[in-house]
Amino acid sequence: MDTKETVLNILADLTGDTTIQNNLDESLFDSGLLDSMATVQLLLELQQQLDIDVPVSELERTEWDTPNKIITQVDHLRNA
């Protein structure tokens, strides 16, 4: 499975919002879809499903706030 699909699946699971794939540039923090708890779950899911480690302090919110940005970050970390 590619990064985009995996990330979108995780996000849809965590937020309970299946329309996420239609709003790839909407801020998940501003809309309240992703709170701190869901953010931590996202990091754990990324660790389990894609085997990438993102420590909490590496999570710069302005770089992780939309589905597209999250996909870019994850892609970057997978290829690092």
């Binding site: 701190s36 990091l43 302090s57």
Partner: peptide, 10 residues
């Protein structure tokens, strides 16, 4: 939030 809550939850 970042140094206590999120780390505890993680």
């Amino acid at each position: 939030r970042d140094y206590v809550y999120m780390r505890f939850v993680f």
